[in-house]
């Protein structure tokens, strides 16, 4: 049952991550469009730059959990590499989990408040003329934090279940 739940979580996280990964194509297109619109037609847009950065925000917050599941958050492995799998599991379950939960918990709690306030006032961008929805970009923070927590729990589960499967490679 638990196993099934975590498999399902991994699949959702991988699905979201793989979809978010494609955003980089949109970013390339946007920036190239902006260069041409400004250079060839003297018609710079008011939105291409900002929208690009928000897409990267989506890439990092929606893709982060996927990267975590695939163990792409690097560590200094000088001692960690020498430890047995059980010791590693203990380090990850105690110290790493504590630091993770404090960090991501703050992002969830205060990032969530930041996003909620932004949504409440329908926050718009002030730098360009387009007035894009800042609240949408900020909402990615708590969403990403929730997904990160799920990804980490799934990782811990796999560590203790002795499951060597590469997370989320569904």
């Amino acid at each position: 049952m638990l196993d099934l739940t975590f498999r399902w979580i991994d699949r959702v996280i991988a699905g979201i991550g793989r979809a978010a990964a494609l955003l980089v194509l949109v970013v390339i297109a946007l920036v190239v469009y902006e260069i041409i619109a400004r250079g060839a037609f003297n018609m710079p847009s008011s939105w291409a730059h900002e929208l690009s950065t928000w897409l990267i925000t989506a890439l990092i917050f929606l893709g982060g959990p996927y990267a975590l599941a695939k163990d792409h958050f690097v560590r200094v492995d000088i001692f960690y590499g020498q430890m047995g799998s059980r010791t590693r599991a203990i380090v990850d379950t105690t110290v790493s989990t504590a630091l993770f939960l404090i960090f991501v918990g703050v992002l969830l709690w205060l990032g969530g408040e930041l996003a909620l306030r932004s949504i409440a006032i329908d926050e718009r961008s002030a730098t360009g003329a387009w007035g894009g929805p800042v609240w949408a970009a900020k909402s990615l923070l708590p969403i990403g934090a929730v997904l990160l927590v799920l990804a980490w729990l799934s990782r811990l589960y796999r560590l203790w279940a002795g499951d060597e499967r590469d997370g989320g490679s569904a």
Binding site: V76, F79, M83, V95, S96, A98
Partner: peptide, 19 residues
């Protein structure tokens, strides 16, 4: 200490700052 025992770097930095 946190980096040496192999905590993922991002969490070592973020968690330590929060504490």
């Amino acid at each position: 200490v946190f980096l040496a025992i192999g905590v993922p770097i991002a969490f070592a930095l973020g968690g330590l700052s929060a504490v």
